[in-house]
């Protein structure tokens, strides 16, 4: 792998690490397989792009993207709690609806270019840093900020009730928590992070595209299982950090795979989905093999609920 390919992969790992943290909240904390993310990632990209293209400060644009993602998540939460639609189906419905919404947001077009517009990277570029450092610095700052916020949030009364909702809804209801509220807001927060990730990706790549969300959930899950396998811990905050690291490793693995050459055969970008699926399968089997080889260690990693 070249020097630039390496940094490029780390960049992607970090920016999609924000998305991975969002997926972690639904998939691992709330036990909620949420496909909304395939629609909320391009939603964030679309909203941020339209705002930036309209001359808005690129940081404010990200705030609007985040809010839009939150809203999308609450819709899925609403469908599944108040209207009692199966969570998976509810999220597919929102995702499907978002496809139309995203095109509307971009003024009827399937993509928007941000060429020549201001982005969140400008202040760092003006320091004279080389590209590969500037991008990583900005993404790292966002990741650090979100990790800090989540680490605080899960320790609050609300955050604890969120964790309990995913673990044992019957118990937390008996403790006076409205699980509809925690699910709706939890899925909202998750998609807010995914949309933030999408908004940043758009500014990074200089374009928002309605189809850029395809495979978001699979990439998120792959990152989570890779993170758990390599860096799994029992504590929530540790697990969140592991998810981000997993995202970086995942992107590095893909870059590595794309660079492989076996005589005349090499992988192409369109093989990504196959590689990802294989990666998830491997990551999911490693713990199984481990546990067969030796007895289970004390305390399962976070999200793999012991009984």
């Amino acid at each position: 792998m070249t020097f630039f390919a390496f940094f490029g992969a780390v960049e992607l790992g970090l920016v999609y690490g924000l998305m991975t943290m969002g997926v972690f909240i639904t998939f691992r904390v709330l036990n909620f397989p949420d496909l909304t993310v395939d629609g909320s990632l391009p939603l964030g990209a679309a909203v941020a792009s339209v705002c930036v293209a309209g001359g808005m400060n690129p940081f404010f644009a990200l705030i609007f993207a985040t809010l839009a993602g939150f809203l999308a998540g609450t819709i899925t939460g609403f469908l599944t709690t108040k209207l009692r639609i199966l969570h998976l189906l509810a999220s597919i419905l929102t995702m499907t609806a978002l496809y139309s919404v995203n095109i509307r947001v971009m003024g009827g077009r399937p993509n928007i270019s941000l060429l020549g517009k201001r982005t969140v990277f400008d202040p760092v570029f003006s320091l004279g840093l080389p590209n590969y450092l500037a991008y990583n610095l900005v993404f790292l700052a966002f990741v650090a900020a979100i990790v800090a916020i989540l680490a605080w949030l899960v320790k609050t009364e609300y955050g604890q009730s969120l964790l309990a909702t995913g673990d044992n809804p019957r118990m937390i209801t008996a403790m006076g928590v409205n699980t509809h509220f925690t699910i709706i807001t939890g899925v909202g927060i998750s998609n807010a992070l995914v949309a933030l990730s999408g908004g940043l990706v758009a500014q990074y790549q200089g374009t928002a595209d309605v189809s850029m969300g395809v495979g978001t959930i699979v990439a998120g899950l792959a990152s989570i299982v890779v993170g758990e396998t390599l860096f799994g811990t029992r504590r929530v905050t540790g697990a969140i950090i592991a998810a981000v690291l997993g995202s970086v490793v995942y992107r590095l693995a893909i870059a590595l795979a794309l660079g492989l050459k076996f005589k005349r055969f090499s992988f192409t970008a369109s093989d990504l989905n196959l590689i990802t699926a294989l990666l998830v399968v491997i990551a999911l089997t490693v713990p199984l093999l481990k546990s067969r080889l030796k007895k289970r260690k004390k305390g399962a990693p976070f999200g793999k609920k012991p009984c």
Partner: peptide, 26 residues
């Protein structure tokens, strides 16, 4: 009880039975 949460976290959830959950420390 919540299996994945600690004893003290479970008790803190119970210690807030019937009270609104805020953004104060759990």
């Amino acid at each position: 009880t919540c299996a994945s949460m600690t004893i003290e976290e479970n008790m803190a959830l119970a210690n807030r039975r019937g009270k609104p959950r805020t953004l104060r420390m759990g």
